[in-house]
């Protein structure tokens, strides 16, 4: 089943034009964004994520190629039309502490209201629904000043919902949030994409959450290419390797996260009684410069056998060493390495 296409870029060139000089950021980007999808845009600092988002929001013109929003060139939209086609959520915290949560979300109705912005009953109902959808209905009469940063972003998402735009763009909306709010906001966006039938594109640095919740990833690689595709396809085809350039940070395909490169890893035969133990044993090993392989017939390799978190055995040639915690094991591994 083919979902409705909301946004499509064909050989889109982005960048800045100042007078006669142009600074091209990307020469040729191809992408498609469909209804019901949450797409995460990943890439290092300066990879051009913000430039692409600004271009998609219509704030700066494309330098070339095609960009269509709902089958119409974005350039042909007026400011007014864009306001009902694209809802925006930005990184920075808004300075609107003197408004209530309801008033702030209701600003999203501005494209639909009259000269003084008076809300009709339907407008109010729509705002109430949006606050309900982001889980902020109970705080409708609270001042924005009383909210946490995560709650503020939820209200800004409600504002975007109230705009009733098919497309919602978010520029690193979780950058300044703590871990739990970050997860909450991402999960919320994932749910809204499906429930409200929105196409949602967000840029983020939070790779872990993006891998968990994004339907598609757009990867801005340091070589200027952008890879688009389903999360798992990109992970398994090596699309995330070297996403942040040649910095000493590697993508661990197994764990789905980036970590500091730790020189050459030494192989260890790792045996654990369950997956959780296996996972955390691997974590401890990698930190100390080892790498656990599950089934190796190479008996010359050291063997780490883990019965329980209190019962760890390390065998390397002669006597087996027994440890009663990961702390003891880690301390010993550090000594072995030297």
């Amino acid at each position: 089943m083919e979902m409705r296409v909301v946004l499509e870029g064909k050989q889109l060139a982005t960048g800045y034009r100042k007078g006669k000089r142009t600074a091209v950021v990307h020469r040729s980007l191809d992408f498609i964004l469909r209804v019901g999808e949450l797409v995460c845009l990943l890439g290092g600092n300066g990879a051009g994520k913000s430039t692409l988002l600004r271009t998609l929001a219509g704030v700066q013109p494309a330098l070339g190629g095609g960009l269509e929003l709902q089958g119409r060139p974005l350039a042909s939209y007026s400011v007014r039309e864009r306001s009902t086609a694209i809802g925006l959520v930005l990184t920075e915290r808004v300075q609107a502490g003197g408004l209530t949560v309801f008033e702030l979300a209701a600003l999203g109705r501005q494209p639909y209201t009259g000269y003084f912005g008076r809300l009709t009953r339907q407008d109010r109902e729509r705002v109430r629904q949006a606050l309900e959808a982001v889980g902020m209905a109970e705080k409708a009469t609270s001042y924005v000043a009383e909210l946490s940063d995560g709650e503020r972003q939820k209200v800004m998402i409600a504002k975007a919902l109230v705009q009733e735009s098919p497309l919602i763009l978010l520029d690193e909306p979780t950058a300044f949030l703590d871990v739990t709010s970050r997860i909450e906001v991402m999960a919320l966006l994932h749910r809204l994409a499906g429930e409200e039938g929105k196409a949602i594109l967000m840029s983020t640095h939070d790779v872990e959450q993006a891998l968990a919740l994004a339907d598609d990833l757009w990867l801005m690689r340091p070589d200027g290419a952008m890879l688009c595709g389903a999360t798992e396809d990109l992970v398994l085809s090596g699309g995330l390797d070297g996403l942040f350039g040649t910095s000493p940070v590697d993508f661990d395909r197994m764990r789905g996260s980036y970590s500091a490169r730790n020189g050459q890893l030494r192989p260890v035969r790792l045996m654990a009684t369950d997956d959780v133990l296996h996972h955390w044993a691997q974590n401890a090993l990698m930190r100390q410069g080892y790498y656990g392989v599950a089934d190796s017939s190479d008996v010359t390799l050291p063997l780490l056998a883990i019965e329980s978190p209190q019962n760890l055995t390390w065998t390397c040639g002669g006597e087996p060493h027994r440890f009663h915690s990961f702390a003891e094991l880690s301390a010993a591994l550090r000594i072995f390495l030297e």
């Binding site: 864009r82 306001s83 925006l88 930005l90 808004v94 609107a96 600003l107």
Partner: peptide, 12 residues
């Protein structure tokens, strides 16, 4: 009140 970028997105 939301800043220029938000205002522009609201059709201002």
């Amino acid at each position: 009140l939301l800043g220029e970028r938000y205002a522009e997105n609201l059709g201002v």
